[in-house]
């Protein structure tokens, strides 16, 4: 279990994580979703003990990371965002080193190394130096190093960034297997589809703050089952705002000179009406996109910007 309470981290007066609280349970995949720079990695850094929080507390199982770091850290496994491996050593030696770093020894360590090599699909490459591996293989081994000591809590910091689709699917399966085995997984990503496909519960992070949290269904419910209508072209944002402000079931999400986003109930039926209203402001609409309620539309509605920005 991970218990984060009122976590805050400042760097030279800049607040990177602001009053973040959540709880992730055993066997659950808890997602931290947010754009680059939202504070996801900083949050994971504070949880893992890499960073010292400015305020707040983190508990791993019943152990406070700041007060009982050895007990807390020995129950955690980390899969960092960047591949962190010794390229001049064979895969087997990499796994063995990290297994021993967490106290495994002798036959137990050797057994786990063999098991993990098998799990990550590198059983036949265990004696090969990592520098000969493809990017996807390195990612899988990187994941293996995080689970070799059978942690109770697994922290994954955007483990699929830059990974080919095949390896990505394999990695996501591995994450599910860990959760299925009762491991509490904290998963950060800025890929919406990944979060939707993988996570049992989510917290959406922006500017260091949690702006929404809950299960996928709960978050979709916050969206109010409204579609997201995105219009591209040239607009007068204020005029568009005035034109739609009194229309029932339509809400401005974002408005700029080149793009306007609207949350609209039953958009496909009401699209002609909306286009007429917007065109009446002197706007030239070149492209229209309707998206069904999703995390992305929720994120845009909550923050006014695309998740990948």
């Amino acid at each position: 279990m991970i218990q984060v309470d009122e976590l805050r981290k400042e760097y030279d007066g800049v607040v990177a994580v602001d009053d973040v609280s959540f709880e992730a349970r055993p066997g659950e995949i808890f997602g931290l979703l947010g754009p680059n720079g939202a504070g996801k990695s900083t949050t994971i850094g504070c949880i893992s003990g890499l960073l010292t929080p400015t305020a707040g507390s983190v508990r791993i199982q019943q152990y406070d990371v700041a007060r009982e770091p050895v007990a807390a850290k020995s129950r955690m496994g980390i899969v960092p965002q960047e591949v962190a491996l010794y390229e001049d050593l064979p895969a087997e030696e990499n796994l063995r080193f990290w297994a021993e770093a967490y106290g495994l020894r002798g036959e137990r360590a050797a057994e786990r190394v063999r098991a993990v090599l098998d799990t990550v699909g590198l059983a036949d490459r265990g004696n090969d130096r990592v520098e000969t591996f493809s990017g996807g293989m390195k990612r899988r081994l990187n994941f293996g190093c995080g689970i070799v000591h059978e942690p109770e809590v697994l922290l994954l910091d955007e483990p699929t960034v830059g990974v080919d689709p095949q390896s990505r699917v394999r990695l996501l399966d591995l994450v599910r297997e860990q959760a299925g085995a009762g491991v509490c997984v904290l998963y950060t990503t800025h890929y919406m589809e990944e979060a939707e496909a993988l996570c049992d519960r989510l917290a959406i992070l922006d500017h260091g703050k949690i702006i929404a949290a809950g299960t996928l269904e709960e978050l979709r419910g916050k969206e109010g089952e409204r579609d997201l209508v995105r219009l591209s072209g040239s607009f007068d944002p204020e005029a568009v705002g005035r034109a739609v402000s009194d229309v029932e079931g339509v809400e401005i999400v974002a408005a700029g000179p080149e793009q306007v986003a609207l949350a609209v109930a039953a958009a496909s039926r009401r699209l002609p009406e909306i286009l007429t209203l917007v065109s009446g402001t002197g706007a030239a609409v070149r492209e229209t996109t309707v998206t069904r309620p999703s995390l992305e539309s929720l994120f845009i509605r909550l923050t006014g910007k695309e998740l990948r920005e």
Partner: peptide, 14 residues
Amino acid sequence: RLGTLERAIVTPGG
């Protein structure tokens, strides 16, 4: 550079 230093920091041994 390899990232292994950060990984080592978060081990129980420190």
